[in-house]
Design a protein around this nucleic acid. Structure first.
Lengths: 246, 246
DNA sequence: GGTGTTGACTTCCTTAGGGAACTAGCGGGA
DNA sequence: TCCCGCTAGTTCCCTAAGGAAGTCAACACC
């Protein structure tokens, strides 16, 4: 069972990319070039390039060419407790942009809706109970990087700024604190998979970019759940970090 | 710019899968069936099925057929602090196997090696300094689910059970504690991407399965780094969880 | 009743050829 | 100098045809 030609070509190109022979931004040989170079049919060359695109290593633009993608992630830090001066080593295997690029929001919608079943259970509500739903899309340097939908029990937040698009300084959690429901603990559940078409469209994902799904549960005193936040991240743009004691 | 046929067919099938019309394990219409049903060429039908496979929704077995994949994740809990009785709600959006299936190890290798550059910086060592490298592959129910490679400074662990394949009861961290280097804090950095071929082979990944990369830094008292652990997880088999205070 | 073989069905991969859609750069005209 | 149109090159998509390789079940045979 010899590896088929399209796979061999893909392996060649992949090694050139990983070796740095084809650095980020470099132009990958075109379909026609591969046809000549390897003596295969156009469709076979096309398949080879499709493999790399599916792995997220390259990005093709019709009419222009195929280029090597770069990975320059945004650092998302959760549960940051460790002082930088003392715990400085172990900084980053993958260098991430520590200088925070500003994150902006577009497409924000806020509405009162009946609670979906899966959320209701987490919030300790009945299915269909009223919740305020805050839906947002976040951009960094103009490109969408994250979708977030958070659910808050209407009984807790009715009348507050949480029910308005601009929740004010400090955001939702500051308002919750003013209402006497300051979050004291968080639980985040994380998984990764390939995006659905609507997710790929909303995040402008190229082929081969997985998404990371994070569901954050926020708890106030006595373990009262006050928020569930479902986030969808472009995995190719994020480096996530959690810290916790032994 | 109408959506091309192969994409329409993929959309049809995807909706049937997500709606539950084609439940996990069900057989997806074959290439020939799609050729008849939609009146397209075989290659087009094939492309439609390839889309679903690339999204990780289906799994094709040559000669047998294409089936809908199921997502039955292993729960990986890190930094668990919250008592179950008080913080019980917000249990799981995605139902995960809480009843821990036993995890076994095969392909374990332990060796003293010169430290790679990226690890050296994190451990506060010079590049090429001696480290003990523990390389393992974990199985659940016979299928590989995770690769892990951990690095420990030779100056700290020389002579201990850490340098042997079986590190004894309680594992590496118990031995570190006995040596006076008990870990007191952890930092985990996480990203997701499509696997490299060797990763896909080692984890027996089907097409469309991303991998999750976790790098864990373990710190002893005074912020001394004592271990770096690089893990590679089959994303389609894991649900990860972190907990932390506000 | 078991056992081995055959054949239908499946996915996988390739060549050959054609066309659509898009991009970037070049040259000519105002 | 600036702008427009053309053109060569690019990716994307499809049809048609054929063969390789694996799976599974029915059927004939002992």
């Amino acid at each position: 069972m010899p590896t088929p030609p399209y796979r061999q070509i893909a392996d060649d190109l992949r090694r050139r990319i990983l070796d740095g022979d084809l650095p980020p931004g470099a132009v990958v040989p075109s379909e026609n070039a591969l046809v000549e170079q390897y003596g295969v049919a156009a469709e076979t060359a096309r398949r080879a390039l499709a493999v790399l695109a599916a792995e997220g290593l390259t990005e093709a633009r019709r009419g222009s060419g195929t280029r090597v993608r770069s990975f320059r992630p945004i650092l998302r830090q959760a549960g940051k407790r460790l002082a930088a001066e003392q715990w400085g080593s172990g900084r980053s295997i993958w260098q991430a942009d520590l200088d925070q690029r500003p994150m902006t929001v577009d497409r924000a919608t806020v509405a009162e809706q009946p609670c979906p079943a899966r959320i209701a259970e987490s919030l300790g509500l009945e299915e269909g109970a009223a919740v305020w739903v805050r839906d947002r899309r976040y951009l960094v340097e103009g490109v969408p990087v994250m979708l977030a939908t958070s659910y808050l029990p209407a009984g807790l937040v009715a009348g507050s700024a949480i029910t308005r698009p601009d929740s004010g300084p400090g955001g939702t959690y500051a308002r919750l604190a003013e209402l006497g429901w300051a979050p004291v603990a968080f639980r985040e559940q994380v998984r990764a998979r390939m995006p659905l078409p609507e997710e790929a469209e909303a995040l402008q994902l190229g082929a081969g970019s997985p998404v990371v799904l994070i569901v954050r549960f926020a708890f106030a005193r006595d373990g009262v759940p006050v928020e569930v936040n479902e986030m969808t991240l472009d995995a190719s743009r994020y480096l996530m970090e959690w810290e916790f004691p032994a």
